[in-house]
C-alpha cells in the first residue's frame, strides 16, 4: 500500500480543518468524533471468561498465523517460562496471555488474554488526526494504514494502551493492534483466537447476547465470579467483555469510569477554542500588559 506523501497529508488536513471549522461554527456542541452512526444494535463481541482459560496460548499462535506474522512452531507455545514476566501486545503479536496468582487456589493460576477491547466510543478514532481509525458496524475498531502518518496520537489516547508501534522499522513504520479479525468475520468466519481456543474461554456472539450470558453465569455461580462484567459500561462500553474471579485492578485492568474516553479529550480540545474566547482573552491579556508597560516607560521617562 502506498503511504500518503506530505502534499496529500497537508491537503487532507486542510480539508478536515475547513470542514471542522464550518461544522463547529454551525453546531459546535454536536461534533463528536466517536462515530455513533455505525454503533450497530447487532454489533458483535467476545466474552472472555478468565475462570476458564488454561493459559495454553494457542490464541497467540492463531492470531499471528492469520495475520501473516511470524508465528513459529505451535508446540513452542506450551512453554510456561514465558509467564515469568508480564507482556503487552506489540508489533510481534496483537494478543498476549499473562499469568496472575489465584488467591483461592495457588496451583491453578489465573490466565488473562490481553488485546484491543474495541471500544464502542473509541478514543483512538477520536484522536486520529487523519481519520485512519474507524469503528465498524461489526463492532471492530480498525485502521487504514494507507492513511496512517505515524503520529502515534492513538497510542496516547487509548485508555488501555493497546496500539503499538514498529519502533524497529526506520522506513514506513506501522501501528499494530488487534483488528477483531475484520477480514475473517466479514467472510462469516470466527476471529482466529476464538476459533482455536480449546476450552472456549472466548465466546463470540452478539454483544447484547453476551451480556445476558455473562449475567446468567454470575447469577448461577456467585462464588465463581465477581459481580462485574468489565467492558459493559467502562469508557462507554467495549466489544470485548471480561468475567473474572479476582478484582480487575489486580489483573492490571485500568480503573475507568463510565464516560467515553473521547468525551474527556474532546471537551478539553474543543473547550480551549470554544467561541474563540480563550484566544481573544489571551490577546486581551497580552495587550493589557503591553499597554501597562508602555505607560510605565512613559512615566519613568518623564521622571528623568
Amino acid at each position: 500500500m502506498n503511504k500518503q506523501n506530505r502534499r496529500d497529508f497537508l491537503k487532507s488536513v486542510t480539508t478536515v480543518g475547513i470542514t471542522a471549522a464550518g461544522l463547529s461554527a454551525a453546531a459546535p456542541t454536536k461534533l463528536n468524533a466517536a462515530p455513533e452512526n455505525v454503533l450497530s444494535e447487532d454489533r458483535m463481541g467476545v466474552l472472555v471468561d478468565t475462570t476458564v482459560c488454561i493459559g495454553c496460548r494457542k490464541c497467540e499462535w492463531a492470531c499471528k498465523e492469520s495475520h501473516g506474522m511470524h508465528a513459529g512452531d505451535i508446540e513452542d507455545y506450551d512453554e510456561k517460562g514465558i509467564f515469568n514476566s508480564r507482556r503487552r501486545p506489540d508489533h510481534t503479536g496483537h494478543t498476549v496471555v499473562n499469568e496472575y496468582e489465584n488467591d483461592k487456589n495457588r496451583s491453578l493460576p489465573i490466565y488473562l488474554k490481553v488485546q484491543c477491547m474495541h471500544c464502542d466510543r473509541p478514543a483512538c478514532v477520536s484522536a486520529c488526526i487523519v481519520g485512519a481509525f474507524s469503528k465498524k458496524e461489526s463492532g471492530a475498531v480498525i485502521w487504514d494504514d494507507s492513511k496512517c502518518i505515524g503520529c502515534r496520537y492513538c497510542m496516547v489516547a487509548c485508555p488501555f494502551q493497546i496500539p503499538a508501534f514498529d519502533y524497529h522499522k526506520a522506513l514506513e513504520p506501522d501501528i499494530h493492534k488487534c483488528d477483531f479479525c475484520f477480514d475473517r468475520t466479514k467472510n462469516g468466519k470466527l476471529p482466529a483466537c476464538v476459533e482455536i481456543c480449546p476450552v472456549e474461554t472466548l465466546t463470540y456472539g452478539k454483544r447484547s447476547d453476551l451480556i445476558q450470558v455473562a449475567r446468567n453465569k454470575i447469577k448461577n455461580y456467585p462464588d465463581r465470579y465477581l459481580d462485574h462484567i468489565f467492558g459493559e459500561t467502562e469508557v462507554g462500553g467495549t466489544s470485548w467483555l471480561y468475567l473474572a474471579s479476582k478484582e480487575f485492578e489486580k489483573l492490571d485492568f485500568p480503573k475507568l469510569g463510565k464516560n467515553p474516553a473521547p468525551g474527556v479529550s474532546e471537551s478539553i480540545q474543543h473547550g480551549i477554542f470554544a467561541y474563540f474566547i480563550p484566544p481573544i482573552a489571551l490577546y486581551a491579556l497580552l495587550g493589557g500588559i503591553m499597554w501597562i508597560s508602555k505607560n510605565r516607560d512613559k512615566s519613568e521617562g518623564e521622571a528623568h
Binding site: 476464538v194 480449546p198 476450552v199
Partner: peptide, 17 residues
C-alpha cells in the same frame, strides 16, 4: 462454535473442559 445458543459451551469447549 458460531451458533445461536451461547448459554452452553460448544462441543470442542465442553470436551476440553
Amino acid at each position: 462454535r458460531l451458533r445461536a445458543d451461547l448459554s452452553k459451551p460448544d462441543l470442542k469447549g465442553a470436551y476440553h473442559r
